[in-house]
Amino acid sequence: MKSVVLKEGFGIDKLTLTHAPSPKLASGMILVKMKAVSLNYVDLLLVKGQLNPTIRPPFIPVSDGAGIVEEVGSDIKDFKPGDHVATTYIPQWIDGRYTAQNSRFETRPGSGTTPGQLVEYKLFRTNELIKVPEFLNFAESCTLPIAALTAWNALAYGKAKAGDTILLHGTGGVSIFALQFAKALGARVIITSSDDNKLTKARELGADCLINYKQTPEWISDVLTMTDSEGADVVVETVGGSNLNKSLEALRLDGHISVVGFLDGVQSPINLIALNLKRAKVNGLSVGSRQDFADMLKAISVNKLKPVIDKIFPLDQTAEAFSYLESARHFGKIVIEF
């Protein structure tokens, strides 16, 4: 079977297509034929050696995948051959609180210890998979585990509801899922980007207000104008760095900032007076639990939401897919199909 591994050292150019024997089914395990994986920024960090420099090659990267169940161990009840499944990113976080115990980094596929999904056949435990609705194809399903669930919880933690205004930055995977979920729950969406073409696409997906932040450096006042001077109810902070203070300025009193990314840097200055006066909540989040995933899938099914895929690469162009992610030209998700 085929897989793509980091063979010797880090770097996109070190991603190598290899052949290895397929794994044999064992009790307690589920054998999945992987059909597609999607790329997240965290995968790029890993490949470049910036996430976990201690991993030992050869290592199979990429956290998110989807496939079809081939065979199940005799003791497996929750899955059967033919089921369409996606992988879960924090497999032991079933529900409730996020704890050191249930969120261990080593359990996260493709993060350095547990191999990732860029492999044709793979054995999983029950909690490492979730059934996905069959109106989605595999390329679509494989985008859900990190990006969609992150977006889902960014809105859920902010208690976003119909009539609220949601501010989104950029048009990457999380932002576009947040746009789709926000529209599905009846909220209004303001989205920022430096690219008018991307903004036009966002409008086609239902974005109510578009801001080109390159053309409008004073975009915060635009957000205030659009919200009767109140500000946005929820901001999904995908940029980080110096942007966090701007998001805080654009937030309404009692509003909620879900910090999900740090494309502009992991260190952010923050205006504590504004934080206090606004009684703002700044909420870090880490993807979500299995129960969150199940809730999200219900929303996707009822509203027939289709993940937005920018580009699909074949397995032998994995390096090109990563370079494309690095170029940040995408709108929505980047997928590799087997």
């Binding site: 859920a156 119909a162 809730d295 899938l297 929303a299 996707i300 009822v302 509203n303």
Partner: peptide, 11 residues
């Protein structure tokens, strides 16, 4: 919307 905290996908 208030007491029910209705989520998309709920029945």
């Amino acid at each position: 919307m208030v007491q029910g905290n209705l989520k998309p996908g709920a029945t």
